[in-house]
Design a binder for these strands. Structure first.
Lengths: 220, 220
DNA sequence: TATTATTTTTAGGCTTGTCTAAATTTATTT
DNA sequence: AAATAAATTTAGACAAGCCTAAAAATAATA
């Protein structure tokens, strides 16, 4: 069955909006895709006819088995290309998303198979997001936000919850790059903020909002 | 100015059919692109309105400066991706074209700049075709005549040494048009003549004189 | 519960890029 | 030079994906 680039983008959007098992509304999709609700409604019927999602008039939708498999294949491609752009082509980690959005639609199983091998079968992308494997299963991720840890200690920065350019740029100014180690020196239980030290002398204040959006692992 | 993927494919097709300085006919394009002549005619008007080619009703077209620059940028991308697929991802020779056809449409100057550097700024692709540089100039390779090749094999007719009407008319009667593929089945070393097959069943005798005036490239 | 407000769908249009069939122009042949 | 053939363009349609405006269904509130 042929799936157009547009259809792929709808599936991806639905997949990303349905984390937590929530069904996805027409309006939520129309905002995510910057399309009118009318266009979305049309497309949902089309995708439903192709058995890619469960649709009932006036109800929110969820992906079918097939739809989810297809969405994951796109996510897999997106994230592998991101790894390629960062590790192989040395792009900055805030520049890769837009290009990966294009590359994810290249049609070739074999290309992705070989790219995966070339990159060393990575299990996480540079933002710390898990890369679905060939069959669609996601590696178990125990990455939690700094906010969830809520205590002082050494951490390794492994990813983000907020992928917006604004946030990524903010992290850049803080000098936080994936793999970076830092130490939480002060944790303020009242407002959830942290004071952290990066390297020997650089110290930053992190608001609760920032701490929630930073994925870390405990840094030995 | 925005150029669609379809438009890019037209420019590329025109570029590849105009090797040797021939103008390109609607019919030749419609065959190359597997489209109806009517569709091609429509598109030529559109591309002409965008100043990408020189168009007069009922006449064959040629690319404008801008059109040629654009076409070369696409060719550059295509050939760099081919190098990547073969050298980096170890694809087989015959599998890369279709994928490169997709990759050539990815929009990012920076991506191509970095890919070029990663690949070591190659000047020829794996088929020996020259890769236009950033500004569109091609590394020097002189087209050779069939006479110079002096052996049997598959060729693509890319141009002429003799531009006289008489010779061009002679080529017409042989059914030789720019871009035409033919197979040299017999080469007579004594007098430099050839017997060639065009299409499935059409065979012609080419004298040394004719063979000297036909510019060819080795045909896949 | 009845009335608003919001969400979703339908209806009708637009653009891009394609098609076939018919008309027109150019090229070839007699 | 006239007749025929071939190439090209025009005309009218269609599918995909988008839009706005209006209608219908659901949700929220008085």
């Amino acid at each position: 069955m042929e799936i157009s680039v547009t259809e792929e983008n709808y599936l991806k959007a639905i997949y990303s909006l349905s984390t937590g098992g929530f069904d996805v509304s027409t309006t939520a999709l129309s905002e995510k895709l910057n399309n009118s609700a009318a266009s979305v409604s049309d497309m949902l019927k089309k995708l439903s006819a192709k058995k890619l999602l469960h649709y009932q008039k006036y109800k929110a939708v969820s992906l079918s088995k097939l739809g989810e498999k297809t969405a994951k294949a796109i996510v897999r491609k997106h994230r592998l290309w991101e790894v390629f752009l960062l590790e192989t082509l040395k792009f900055g980690w805030d520049e890769v998303h837009e290009i990966a959005e294009q590359l994810e639609h290249i049609r070739s199983e074999e290309l992705i198979r070989r790219l995966d091998i070339f990159l060393g079968k990575p299990r996480f992308d540079p933002h710390g997001d898990p890369i679905p494997d060939h069959s669609g299963s996601l590696p178990a991720t125990r990455a939690r936000s700094l906010f969830e840890y809520a205590k002082n200690g050494s951490y390794v920065f492994v990813g983000v919850n907020d992928h917006s350019p604004d946030f990524l740029r903010h992290l850049s100014t803080l000098g936080l790059k994936p793999g970076e180690r830092f130490r939480a020196e002060e944790h303020n239980a009242y407002d959830g903020s942290f004071k952290v030290r990066i390297g020997r002398n650089t110290r930053h204040f992190l608001s609760q909002k920032v701490a929630s959006n930073i994925l870390v692992k405990s840094g030995t």
